[in-house]
């Protein structure tokens, strides 16, 4: 589904990703873990075109996407859930959802049908449809962000720290929803610091260190020696 090969990228003169290669398999939840500064979020930004790679290739469904401007990726079927709050605070919930359908805005019947579909999945959004999104609680904003990402029916979603800043109860709910998405056939590539929680929901895990993949394995395998992996990060 997504193949990242020998990618190098960074900000200005500071290189963050060093010859990094990994892949996200179809219908799987692939998890990226690693110490702070390993380049996890930078990798997602590079895939989505916010950071331009200086080397390497990024292919989505066989098509080269590195160097494409970010706004073209939505049309290809890639979604991106940012770590920070990313609802448009002064737009209503319904307007937020509508913008998720920007790539097929001319098909108003489909837009309305997708919005209804999201209201069914997340009833709280329907209740508050004409309120400003900025007035919602942190957990509700996250649900709106997920619903908005799902509007165009993406094939792949990049997820950056889905539980950041949320209470444990709501974080659990977010993981449950993400897991459901995978079961519905959406491929997920997720970065998470909340390793203990997220590893149980993943299929495959990559460990990133200093901008490279230092190891990879099936999720259940790494779960067994998680302690060793985390301890090894503390050495440098």
């Amino acid at each position: 589904m997504l193949e990242v090969a020998n990618v190098e990228a960074g900000y200005g003169k500071i290189q963050i990703l060093n010859n990094l290669s990994l892949s996200a398999k179809e219908n799987k939840l692939t998890l990226l873990i690693g110490p702070n500064g390993a380049g996890k979020s930078t990798l997602l930004k590079t895939i989505f075109g916010f950071v331009t790679p200086s080397k390497g290739s990024i292919r989505f469904q066989g098509e080269e996407i590195s160097g494409l401007p970010s706004h073209k990726l939505a049309n290809l079927g890639i979604g991106f859930l940012l770590q920070r709050v990313s609802v448009f605070p002064d737009l209503t919930i319904e307007e937020n959802l509508k913008l998720g359908a920007w790539s097929f805005k001319k098909d108003s019947a489909r837009v309305a049908q997708r919005i209804e579909c999201m209201y069914e999945k997340f009833p709280i959004l329907k209740q508050k449809r004409s309120e400003s999104a900025g007035l919602m609680s942190g957990g509700q904003k996250r649900m709106l962000e997920i619903a908005r990402t799902l509007m165009p029916g993406p094939r792949l979603i990049l997820v950056d720290e889905p539980s950041a800043g949320l209470s444990p109860k709501i974080a659990k709910e977010v993981y449950r929803v993400l897991h459901e998405l995978r079961d519905e056939g959406i491929t997920l590539l997720m970065v998470d610091q909340n390793i203990r929680e997220s590893i149980g929901y993943s299929d495959h895990v990559y460990v990133l260190e200093r901008g490279q993949v230092s190891s990879e394995s099936a999720a259940d395998e790494i779960e067994k020696n998680l302690k060793q992996v985390v301890e090894s990060w503390l050495k440098f």
């Binding site: 401007p69 970010s70 939505a74 448009f88 002064d90 737009l91 913008l99 920007w102 908005r148």
Partner: peptide, 20 residues
């Protein structure tokens, strides 16, 4: 709606597919 979205959050509007 897209113009208001860009005025609030340029990066997120790019994620929506809006050519800011």
């Amino acid at each position: 709606t897209a113009l208001r979205a860009i005025s609030q959050d340029r990066d997120t509007s790019a994620i929506m597919g809006i050519n800011a």
